[in-house]
């Protein structure tokens, strides 16, 4: 019977240390209070029915002491917890991307290389992995106890989380936000593999091509390509170089073209009109494209980014774009998130 979970990510140990610190302080506090209550209860038990103890009305010094000192100790919890929380908020540059779609009641995982899985996540050991999370229906929560990471998967938007696995093995994957009938069946496994095993595994699947290729196909099928031309101005904004750039809008504002912006522009085209264009030209694609398809389109558009635009965490990589027409996913891992190598 396990009493403590495995630690299999870089962050797991630092959270465990903080947890032990909290347990230590709590144990000391509990023992102090319990022994005070216990000792007083024994020592000052009523010995004769009519004894009347002298009144003690309080002590300002003591009140200040036991308000301020615990609060200072609590500030150390706050500080330490916030520090880990902040460090773990954004992935290191060059993290590899994997895309997760939650739906009642399964996890659908797709890899940039084109593999798709259900309720199984494969990651290499020692490499930062960034998950982009989307939901098709209700709120889910992606929880890997051995990694000490959890993030809600909220419909209508993208969330991201990341981790670096440290130990090969198989670990639980749970849905942690109640999502209906088979909530407790929305579970799976995370397999952490050594780098060579992972490369090997990657070459196994992906008969539909890479996510970029899948996205490019969708771009044609849905007719996006008739108005959004790649390299010259059509009826709608040019696609090459959009991702990661700051887009000037009709109302004078600018917006960073990130995943959320692309998603919104596909589902609700009138929400943000690019300067120089008219509203109501583009129809909405709400309900006509799956969450997975949206992610493929975004990965495709991301691959069209030209340079590493400043201010983006995930500039597109030229490498991924050049594989766009390739017949099979390359054995060598492409890095759509670019940056290094």
């Amino acid at each position: 019977m396990p009493l403590f979970p495995e630690s299999a990510s870089t962050i797991a140990n630092s959270i465990d240390y903080l947890y032990f610190y909290l347990i230590a302080v709590s144990t000391i506090m509990t023992v102090l209070i319990f022994s005070a209550v216990f000792i007083f209860a024994i020592k000052y038990r009523r010995r004769s029915p009519d004894e009347i103890p002298a009144p003690i009305h309080g002590s300002l010094k003591l009140e200040i002491f036991w308000s301020v000192v615990p609060f200072i100790i609590m500030l150390s919890f706050f500080w330490w917890g916030a520090q880990i929380f902040f460090e773990s908020a954004s992935p290191p540059p060059g993290a590899m991307d994997i895309y997760v779609v939650g739906k009642q009641w399964m996890w659908k995982i797709q890899y940039p290389e084109g593999q798709r899985e259900i309720n199984e996540l494969h990651v290499p050991v020692g490499k930062p992995v960034r998950l982009t999370l989307a939901s098709e229906d209700v709120i889910h929560s992606f929880f890997i106890p051995a990694f000490r990471v959890k993030h809600d998967v909220v419909p209508g938007r993208y969330d991201t989380m990341w981790f670096t696995a440290t130990k090969p093995g198989r670990y639980h994957l749970f849905c942690a936000e109640y999502c209906g009938t088979e909530h407790s069946g929305m579970v799976g496994w995370v397999t952490v593999m050594s780098e060579p095993d992972y490369e090997n595994w990657l070459t196994g699947g992906g008969s539909e091509g890479t996510m970029v290729q899948q996205g490019e196909r969708l771009f044609q099928q849905l007719g996006c390509s008739t108005c959004h031309l790649l390299d010259q101005q059509g009826r709608c904004p040019i696609m090459r170089g959009v991702y990661g750039s700051h887009v000037q809008l009709q109302d004078g504002k600018t917006v960073l073209a990130d995943d959320a912006y692309i998603r919104e522009s596909i589902l609700n085209p009138n929400a943000k009109i690019v300067a120089g264009f008219k509203p109501d030209v583009m129809p909405t694609f709400q309900g006509q494209i799956s969450e997975e398809g949206l992610l493929q389109l975004i990965v495709y558009i991301k691959s069209l980014a030209i340079t590493s635009a400043p201010g983006t965490t995930a500039p597109g990589a030229a490498g991924a774009a050049t594989t766009g027409g390739g017949p099979r996913p390359p054995a060598k891992r492409t890095q759509p998130t670019g940056g290094k190598k």
Binding site: I11, S14, I15, L18, Y19, L22, S26, M29, T30, M74, F77, F78, W80, G81, A82, Q83, I84, F85, S88, S141, F143, P145, R148, V149, K150, A176, E177
Partner: peptide, 19 residues
């Protein structure tokens, strides 16, 4: 009350919330 402090601690809450 003391275990409430665990839940107020950001990084620890991420792991134990909804458990």
């Amino acid at each position: 009350g003391l275990t409430g402090l665990f839940l107020a601690t950001l990084a620890v809450d991420v792991h134990v919330t909804d458990t």
